[in-house]
């Protein structure tokens, strides 16, 4: 018999975290939304199989979990890249040319038609409606960091920096 936990692969840690999340919410169906929220924090999206597992643990039909997950725009059903780039498309940013930023980003990230995430899973591009940083319009948020008064050039430079950091 062995007992000590040594370094486990990330996916195993994530799954262990799901178990922990479920336990901390007492496996209660009423807590489905916060449970999914916590699961998403772990995986950055809601993997299908994990949702089925959550449904099993809560004793509800998987279709119900899927229904809740698709109801809230906040939940992502597809894996997101390591860097989530959000371009604000609220009124102020829109007026100041946020669409140009989106086009520039699609271009330099070489995003295929209809896709939001780069095939190497490094970047996900999203637009959001008003980040509440209208004074900084147009604004771009990368993960938690807000960058204001952006131009296509400064946006491209941000991406370049990240690529360099990643050794690309």
């Amino acid at each position: 018999m062995c007992s000590n936990v040594v370094e486990a692969p990330q996916s195993a840690r994530q799954f262990a975290k799901v178990l922990q999340i479920l336990a901390s919410f007492g496996n209660e169906e009423a807590k489905l939304v916060p449970i999914l929220q916590a699961v998403q924090e772990e995986y950055r999206y809601l993997p299908e199989e994990v949702m089925t597992f959550v449904a099993t643990a809560l004793g509800v039909p998987p279709a119900r979990v899927y229904g809740v997950a698709t109801f809230y725009g906040h939940f992502a059903l597809e894996p997101k890249g390591k860097y989530v780039v959000r371009v604000c498309d609220g009124t102020a940013c829109h007026v100041k040319g946020s669409q140009n930023l989106v086009e520039t980003l699609r271009d330099i990230l070489k995003l295929p038609e209809g896709k939001k995430t780069t095939p190497d899973m490094l970047f996900t591009l999203e637009t959001v409606s008003c980040l509440g940083a209208c004074g900084l319009a147009p604004a771009v948020v990368i993960n938690e960091d807000v960058h204001g008064l952006m131009t296509p050039e400064s946006t491209a430079a941000l991406i370049e920096d990240i690529r360099r950091e990643e050794g690309l």
Partner: peptide, 10 residues
């Protein structure tokens, strides 16, 4: 008592 189908999206 199955729930094989449900509402999705909004």
């Amino acid at each position: 008592g199955i729930g094989a189908i449900g509402f999705t999206h909004r």
